[in-house]
Structure formats: structure tokens, C-alpha cells
Design a protein around this nucleic acid. Structure first.
Lengths: 206, 206
DNA sequence: ATTGAGTGAACGATCGTTCATTCAATATAT
DNA sequence: ATATATTGAATGAACGATCGTTCACTCAAT
């Protein structure tokens, strides 16, 4: 994997920058793991450094403060919603799109790690504007997409679609969080109830 | 207010025990206030003592540890659900009971202080069994009551009422939490959407 | 020669908790 | 009723641990 071309000046991503990028990612993943098991404010910088396998001082070469790290995690977690956002943008019958959206979003958020991290972020966002901003921005985007799906077909739906989209999103996310600590078998039943509930809300047959 | 009866021995609640009880309550209220603005783990014992207007050492005469205080707050907050529990036990038409339940529960949980504290407790309960236990117990009780309301009338409802009760409770609580940070005017619209949504879920006309 | 990742000691602040002590309220003995 | 002993609320200093952050320094990559 040796490359020595003449115009390498435009690609200064040498060994140095590459490992730096990798190291940064390792730190973020270690931090996320710590935050999930211990929570934001019960996790120390030393915990994260130890888990990432680096020294205490070196962590500060990649992140200037603990707050910055928390913010980064919050942003990355919110960005994971890109997948479900894409589903809502696909073509197809409304009931199919909704069903897929609910199933995928539910599956993701009912994983205990994600549920715990989401709860931590939610709690933190209520107090820390730096966390609330990306959190609310991503949510607004998701609501807008979902609302557009609710308009598109000819479901007789004269009401405020944005309000309904907010309500449905809230329902899906919080139901998934609740299901995260149920046994796997009951989870399927909860997902089923959720699916038919949303259908009922938007005026579709189950 | 002097009372000197013969059988006063059975009522040894003298000045001492009374002020102790009062002081304990003051500490709990101070702690709750601190937890709301700073969160559990960003609040120090010194913060609480200062807010309660007592010394650091004296706080330990009333609570043996910070964890105990957090647990006490969590229990008291969950016990506030007694009001809505009573509403569900009243007699009357199902739609009226449901509407009252939703309105009262929503109003309570959409107060920012309560929303913040609830989020804090939820997050903590996922990690701390001492918090999760009373939290889940009270919730189960509320779900049971709500489920019994869903059975009682002759709404054609062959499905699992407990699952539906869980879903409705989740919807009401999380919608209220979301509304807590909306302007007051939008809150009313959200409550309206919530009311009609629940009606639709249980098969009632709006 | 310069840069920046990497290290661990060190710093000052703050944490939860314990401690010795004071003092008013209560219980007991006279 | 008076004197005495005991209790427990109240205080703030003190302790050891841990916190987030900084620092001087090494060394490989540029």
C-alpha cells in the first residue's frame, strides 16, 4: 500500500492524520460505552481514557473538555436518525412506509444501549442548550418528513399534520424506550400494538 | 394550644419530633429544587444543605447518604400519581373519566419542573435498581387501573387492554414532557390532539 | 528543524462523608 | 418540683478520594 505520486501534496492525509482520526473515533466509542453504563456525570475523563487505552493527557489532545465530548456523543447519536429519515423519503404506499419506519425506528431505539443513551441525552438537553440544539434540530427535521408523508396520500385528514407527526414520533420513540427493558417476547407484542395504534391514529385499517 | 391529658404517654410527639419532621421535609424540598436545576449528579450535598439553610453535618443527621436522598425524591415524585390514580377509580362515563385523567396528568407533567425531574428519574432508573423499583411499581399500578377502565364499558375492544393501557400511558406522559418546553398556546393544541388521539385509539368518537 | 501524538505526574478544587463538640429538649431520679 | 442524665439536632472543621485540567517532556512523523 505504498503510494508515491508527484501530486501528493494535495493529499496530505499521511499516516499521522489517519491514525489521529482513528484515535478520535476510538475515544468517542469509549466515551459512549462509559456513558451508557455510568451516565454522563458519573463518568470521569480517566474512565474514558482507560477504556480507550490511552493516557489521560493524550485525551486532551483530541478533545478540549469533557463537555465537548458529551456534545459530540449527543450529535452523533442524533445523526443516527438519518436511516429512518431516508425511509420516510422513499416511494410507495403510505401504510408500507409508515410500517417500515415504525419497525426500524422501534428496533433501533429498543436496544437497551440506545434507550439508555437517549434518556441520558434527553435529560441533559433539558438543562444544557449545547445539547438541546442539535437534538431539537434533528427532531424537527424528522417531524417535517413524517408530516409530509401524512399529507401525501388521500387519507381524509384535514387536521394539523405537524401536530399529529409530533405525536406519532413521540409515541414511537417512548414506546421503544419502554420496550427496551421488557423481555424479547413481549417486545414483539408491543411493536404490534404500536403499529396498529399508529394506523388507527391516521385513519388506516390495521 | 396547651394540652395536658392523663394518657399523653401514647403521644410522645413533642416539640422535638415535630421540628425534626419539618426539617426533614425542608431538606427534601431543597434537594428537589437543586435536582431540577442541576440534575442529580451535578448537585452536591453542600448545595442542598445551603439551599435548606442548614449545616453540612446536620444533613447527615436526617439522611445517611446522597443516594438515600435521591431515592426519597424519586419515591415522592412517583407518589404524586395518587391523584390521577383516584380519577381513574371514579364512577362515570368512560370518555369523561379518560378525558379528565388525560387533562390532569398532562397538566401536571407539562410543568417544566416536573418534566425535568421525571426525565432525571427515568434516566437514573435505567441504571439504579433502587430507583427503578418504586418507579416501576407505581407505574404498574397506574397501568392496571387504566386497563380496568378500558374494560369496564362496552367499547368493542377484544384486544389486550393492558398493552393498550401501557401504550396510552406512555403516550400521555411523553407528550406532556414534550409539551413542557413549548409555549403555553401550543400546549393547549397539543393537549387537544392528545385527547382526540386517545379517543381514536380506544374507538370512541372525539 | 518542526510538528503534534503520546505520557504520567502534578495542581487546585470539590466531592461525600466523618468527626468532635455545643446545646436545648427530653427522660429519669430524687 | 428540682436536679441530673441522656438524647439527638446542629455546627463547621477536617479527611481522604477523586475530579477536570494543565504541564513538562519524549519521540516518531513530517
Amino acid at each position: 500500500m505504498q503510494e508515491q505520486s508527484d501530486d501528493d501534496k494535495e493529499k496530505p492525509l499521511a499516516k499521522r492524520a489517519l491514525t489521529t482520526q482513528k484515535r478520535r473515533k476510538e475515544i468517542v466509542e469509549a466515551a459512549a460505552a462509559c456513558f451508557i453504563t455510568q451516565g454522563f456525570h458519573q463518568t470521569s475523563i480517566r474512565d474514558i481514557a482507560k477504556r480507550a487505552g490511552i493516557s489521560l493527557g493524550n485525551l486532551y489532545n483530541h478533545f478540549s473538555s469533557k463537555t465537548d465530548l458529551i456534545a459530540e456523543i449527543a450529535v452523533l447519536e442524533s445523526d443516527d436518525q438519518t436511516v429512518v429519515n431516508d425511509i420516510l423519503s422513499e416511494d410507495g404506499k403510505v401504510q408500507d412506509i409508515l410500517a417500515r419506519f415504525i419497525a426500524v425506528h422501534f428496533d433501533e431505539l429498543s436496544k437497551p444501549e440506545n434507550a439508555v443513551l437517549a434518556a441520558e441525552i434527553t435529560s441533559e438537553a433539558m438543562r444544557n442548550p449545547q445539547i438541546a440544539e442539535p437534538f431539537l434540530e434533528n427532531r424537527a427535521q424528522l417531524v417535517a418528513r413524517l408530516a409530509s408523508v401524512l399529507i401525501s396520500p388521500d387519507l381524509n385528514y384535514p387536521e394539523d399534520t405537524t401536530e399529529m407527526a409530533e405525536l406519532i414520533l413521540t409515541l414511537v420513540q417512548s414506546t421503544a424506550a419502554r420496550a427496551a427493558f421488557q423481555p424479547g417476547r413481549k417486545q414483539k407484542a408491543t411493536l404490534g400494538a404500536l403499529q396498529s395504534s399508529v394506523c388507527r391514529l391516521v385513519g388506516l385499517s390495521d
